[in-house]
Design a protein around this nucleic acid. Structure first.
Length: 415
RNA sequence: GGAGGGAUGGCCGAGCGGUCAAUGGCAGCAGACUGUAAAUCUGCCGGACUUUGUCCUACGAAGGUUCAAAUCCUUCUCCCUCCA
């Protein structure tokens, strides 16, 4: 087995980030010789990053930690085009204001994993709208156009998939890979960036950038991708009982985030620890020895560490404590989602099904009724009937609603 | 431009003019079993309600035929295939 000299490459490989690299040996030599600058691009497809973005953010984190400089490139320009990769339908186009809001909102998560400052390894925030918005069509075409062949572009997975599935690929989207390639060249010129990181679905786009750099900039650029993270049962990662897993706390609470990791499948725990926590590898190796039900201990470590990284130690501890009280003691934790009901309304009595809808545990009265009929609904840990009327709180002044074993909501009374 | 085929619930995909809120599968939710895991089995899976029932909305869009239309007719929109 080849050994690598740079701490960066050693770390990325040991933790399971390597999927493909354009020239691993040369990249290793370069990283060993001195600091390099690398980037990952993020389009403003939502107002928060989600769990799918986390692998690449972790790569940037390790990059910075091993003495190099990360760039988070916001796709202020490319979002207006829409990356066809991994999509079998054209993305809905969004306007400038929305893009600006989303980019700002995404920053909170980045700052948890990266340090932005003016030091040698300080992260840089860039926006490709800065150079893409002002492009002149003809001069741009003359500059990059000769270096792309349609023959080659048609072999790209993102393009092939659309054509094979007989889904339309607009000319607008077809240009995405060219712009992404140009981004790389521009970042190289502005910041001396020589490496682009990304998910395996970005491989085609990244390679285009590497080649474009060699052809028009005479720059030696590198591409490095990480595997697409799926669970061991093959499902794409990112869904939880509460929906999509967002990194912004206001969209997905620290408690939910903790629970997401806590519910990891057995077979994924160690792999996820390497990818999504900064626990030392020897510590992870120790946890790897756990078997059977003991794996739950490893899951708690995973959940606590991952939540600490994103939301801080205090929030993570609170989440862990709430989970412990709720699941191990069948009690009530402080971090459980809470809704408030005016005392007057409660005094008049609220039927059980209506209360579950109020708490967001069911999306319609019918769904709440079905939940109750199926025996999945509990009020203060007691099964209830659809017609049960709730008109008073328990001795501790609250009502605990449960939909299944994992979703709990606390009802507090106001007024 | 010509000829044909298609558009069905989050996705895929059935659907003889009445028994269709629409077979299946996937996804999702709940129950059982467990370890807050996986696998498996069971139930649910458009909405409202006074829930063995009634009403509303829905099979690309708009009209029409009929006691009755996802199913037939007309026009329109979009997609695909073949020919030019």
């Amino acid at each position: 087995m080849t050994t690598y000299r740079s701490e960066l490459i050693q770390t990325l490989i040991a933790r399971g980030f390597l999927h493909q690299c354009t020239d691993l040996g040369a990249l290793d030599a370069k990283a060993a010789a001195g600091p390099i600058t690398a980037y990952v691009g993020y389009d403003a497809t939502a107002d928060s990053l989600h769990i799918g973005n986390l692998v690449s953010v972790m790569m940037l984190h390790w990059l910075q930690k091993t003495g190099h400089r990360p760039i988070t490139l916001m796709g202020g320009g490319t979002t207006k085009i829409g990356d066809p990769s991994g999509r079998d339908e054209t993305r809905v186009l969004v306007d400038d204001d929305t893009i600006r809001e989303r980019m700002a909102s995404q920053q909170t998560a980045f700052r948890r994993f990266l340090t932005y400052d003016s030091s040698a390894t300080g992260a840089i925030l860039a926006n490709n709208a800065d150079w893409l918005d002002g492009l002149q069509y003809i001069s741009f075409l003359r500059m990059v156009g000769p270096h792309f062949t349609i023959n080659r572009m048609l072999t790209m997975d993102s393009v092939k998939m659309r054509l094979e599935r007989e889904q339309p690929l607009t000319f607008l989207e077809f240009n995405y890979m060219i712009l992404q390639g140009y981004d790389f060249v521009e970042l190289n010129k502005r910041y001396g960036c020589t490496l682009q990181l990304g998910g395996s679905d970005q491989w085609g786009n990244i390679v285009q950038g590497v080649e474009l750099g060699r052809r028009i900039g005479n720059a030696e650029l590198f591409g490095f991708t990480c595997p697409l993270i799926t669970t061991s049962s093959g499902a794409k990662m990112g869904k939880s009982v509460s929906g999509a897993v967002w990194l912004n706390g206001d969209k997905f609470s620290p408690y939910d985030y903790y629970q997401f990791w806590r519910n990891t499948e057995d077979g994924d725990v160690i792999r996820f620890m390497k990818l999504f926590t900064i626990l030392p590898l020897d510590e992870i190796a120790r946890l790897e020895k756990l078997q059977g039900a003991e794996i739950n201990e490893a899951k708690k470590v995973l959940a606590l560490e991952a939540t600490t990284l994103l939301h801080g130690a205090d929030a993570a501890k609170d989440a862990a404590e709430t989970a412990r009280k709720t699941f191990e003691q069948g009690g009530i934790g402080d971090d459980l989602p809470t809704i408030e009901i005016p005392a007057s309304e409660l005094g008049a009595g609220i039927t059980a099904f209506a209360l579950f809808v109020r708490a967001g545990l069911a999306t319609s009265n019918g769904e709440a009724r079905r939940l109750i009929a199926g025996g999945g609904a509990k009020i203060n840990d007691e099964k209830c009937a659809e017609t049960t009327v709730v008109n008073a709180v328990g001795p501790d002044g609250i009502i605990k609603l449960s939909a299944g074993k994992k979703r709990h909501v606390i009802v507090k009374v106001t007024g």
